[in-house]
Design a protein around this nucleic acid. Sequence first.
DNA 1: TGTACATCAGTGAACGCGCGTTCACTGATGTAC
DNA 2: TGTACATCAGTGAACGCGCGTTCACTGATGTAC
Lengths: 207, 207
Amino acid sequence: MEKGKYHHGDLKNALIQAGSEILAKEGVGSLSLRKVAGRAGVSHSAPYAHFTDKQALIAAISTEGFRLLYERLQATSDANRADPARMLSEVAYAYLSFALDAPASFKVMFSGVLEQEKAYPEFVAMSKKNFLLLVELVELCQAAGLLKAGDPGQLAVSVWSLVHGFTALLLERQIPGTIRDRAELSVLLCQALNLITLRDVPVPGKS
Amino acid sequence: MEKGKYHHGDLKNALIQAGSEILAKEGVGSLSLRKVAGRAGVSHSAPYAHFTDKQALIAAISTEGFRLLYERLQATSDANRADPARMLSEVAYAYLSFALDAPASFKVMFSGVLEQEKAYPEFVAMSKKNFLLLVELVELCQAAGLLKAGDPGQLAVSVWSLVHGFTALLLERQIPGTIRDRAELSVLLCQALNLITLRDVPVPGKS
DNA sequence: TGTACATCAGTGAACGCGCGTTCACTGATGTAC
DNA sequence: TGTACATCAGTGAACGCGCGTTCACTGATGTAC
């Protein structure tokens, strides 16, 4: 961990961290093995002691992205257990916020940069974990009469599609009209959510 | 147009076409200026007579993608003028089909490959044209009592988010569970649509 | 109709670059005795 | 405690590659007279 050491101690995680930082500061186009190694302060061939190739490193960086997303969604969902309607809108807003805060990470996770994701079990597991959180959320909303009855998994796909689509289109600047700030955004997101809920949902982002 | 000519005649369009073919056959990762030129049968510097740089060529290829998408959506929407419910589901399915038929084109259009899209007025115009078609569709559905009243532009954003999100997640293989064929897919899409419509919509893809 | 010439749309060599990956190596660490 | 040695996690030179872009050039075309 200390500087100046020949052996790094935790290079694997340092590389994942460095990758996320490069994404945040320079974008997806700059995510190369050599830059990641450089940012972690090691030679450009050092990563091969921990990852078989570039794809494996990208898989790890994406997995970390899903882990961070899960943390956010989980925290948001836990904080709103008492009120399913608020829980739904806040979790949706947390998803959107994650994408706005770390757009390049979001793109790596969802824009096919990782090619053979099925080959990386940890990636699959972490992405599934997020989906299961959503399914659980949907079940709670169903029990509260906020979402109509039916297969929760299937309903979760629909809810996710709505929120993900809104987020993706927004990131790609495909949504027409001017959006001044996040408050306005949360209203728009809310209006979309209200299309699929049986009762209106509170505008998120107050806390 | 004929082979063997020193002057190509319509190289600009040939390059756009070649670009789309490369996307179809080799994917986004293989879309380079040199490959596009090669496929069009000209030297790698010939494109510079027609495009200022690689981004401009990508802008043109993306614009062509939006034109093709528009053609599909327009044809589908025209063919179902009589029945707004069918029109909605068929247009949504046409959108999904476009993405499945030309996934790499879809990705170029929607995954931030083009960086300064505002700098390409034709791209912006063609993408707007698609959105306006959707707004018109929403208005028809509202008039038919299929969608609730309200600002059609805003409602269009929500509908688009739902369909786009479903499509994007599907392309990224993020939707859990096995989907055997397109028939099954159209049912899933339909169930998502039924969440936001006031009456159920027919399963698309029969014609 | 024939010729001179400007214009245009190509060619192909060359540039510098950053990339992923390999490989022989070496410095640091920990364990056996 | 001290030494020998295996193991591990790094280094840095080298590889070949494809890329975007520039530039001096040249072949083809069309127009003026």
